[in-house]
């Protein structure tokens, strides 16, 4: 497969996952905001998750609901619309690789989002809109899983999706730590249960957590669940196992595989409960994020950047 096309597949995976996770994040936090006396922190923290605070403040001053929703749905950088546009652009330029219907799903979703964002998204219609976006992302992924041969193209797309997912899970968890440990936000402590619950819901993990963790919802267990659970598809550990599996099916994968193993070891050998109680979890998550960036870098240099040391027939 062409290196350039492999790269596009990888980014389609990343961007489509970003569309879904951004929609999920907004949906859950819209609900959460209704339960909190002062929802200021909630909206601000969503901007932190994107890691794109600077560009937010280029356009907006206040980190309030209206601005944050605008930024994350239709903004120029970290929004659903932009991620989708990028996914579509990558898909459009590699249509000959994907099943036609998969491209059609991206294209239709793009038109749906563009149409719905022509006028500002009101609170009443927001949930339905976001629900539709999430559902269509699942359709796309489901279509690929059900109808696309598990070839290199498929594995590159999956690789992108899993890396993005692991990354998003660490970001969401990090925001939880930050909000609840920061002394400025002491008033939020009363709502701890609510916050951790909504955090779980942001990764669609509440029900699974309840089934697999005996204790009630609490920070250290949630952190452990999101980082180390072996069965939950959005836990970092689970995603990394899948990244590793994708690498196994791809040629010349030594370096990406090595970087993935390093990250897996860090997660598997960690004691999240200790890290949580000593307040070091945030630093740990930082390390994991660096690991993920390293994997991404290895994927790029191994497969996407031109190499001329081997000739095949």
């Amino acid at each position: 497969m062409l290196s350039r096309v492999a790269e596009r597949m990888f980014w389609i995976g990343r961007y489509m996952e970003r569309v879904e996770s951004t929609a999920l994040l907004l949906r859950v936090n819209t609900n959460l905001a209704l339960d909190l006396p002062n929802s200021k922190h909630v909206w601000g923290s969503l901007i932190d998750i994107t890691g794109d605070k600077d560009s937010f403040h280029e356009t907006y001053q206040l980190e309030n609901e209206q601005n944050v929703v605008k930024f994350l749905t239709g903004g120029e950088t970290s929004s659903i619309r932009t991620a989708l546009k990028n996914a579509r652009e990558n898909a459009r330029t590699s249509r000959e690789i994907m099943p036609r219907e998969a491209w059609e799903k991206i294209n239709k979703l793009h038109h749906f989002v563009e149409n719905n964002l022509k006028t500002p998204l009101k609170r009443e219609g927001r949930d339905a809109f976001l629900g539709e976006v999430i559902g269509r992302c699942h359709e796309f992924t489901g279509y690929l899983t059900g109808c696309m041969s598990v070839t290199q193209a498929f594995n590159f797309m999956k690789l992108g999706r899993k890396l993005e997912r692991a990354d998003m899970t660490t970001r969401i968890l990090d925001i939880g730590c930050y909000n609840l440990n920061d002394p400025k936000h002491t008033e939020l402590a009363d709502y701890e249960l609510l916050l951790w619950t909504s955090l779980l819901m942001s990764v669609s993990g509440y029900q699974m957590y309840r089934q697999h963790v005996d204790d009630h919802v609490n920070g250290e267990d949630v952190a452990d669940f999101l980082l180390r659970d072996e069965h939950f598809p959005r836990s970092v550990d689970f995603c990394l196992d899948e990244v590793s599996e994708c690498c196994e099916h791809l040629p010349l994968s030594d370096e990406p595989q090595r970087a993935t193993n390093l990250a897996q070891r860090r997660i598997k050998n960690s004691n999240v409960i200790d890290l949580f109680s000593s307040g070091e979890l945030h630093w740990f998550i930082d390390e994991v994020q660096l690991d993920l960036a390293r994997i991404h870098h290895q994927v790029e240099t191994t497969w996407f950047t031109y190499r001329n040391d081997s000739v095949t027939e």
Partner: peptide, 26 residues
Amino acid sequence: ELVEGRDLVVGDDDCVYMKTVEGLSR
């Protein structure tokens, strides 16, 4: 394969190759 100019390279043997994830392919 749908290729762009940058996906192709002419080798020292004056043959045309495309850049793939497995290396160069004639």
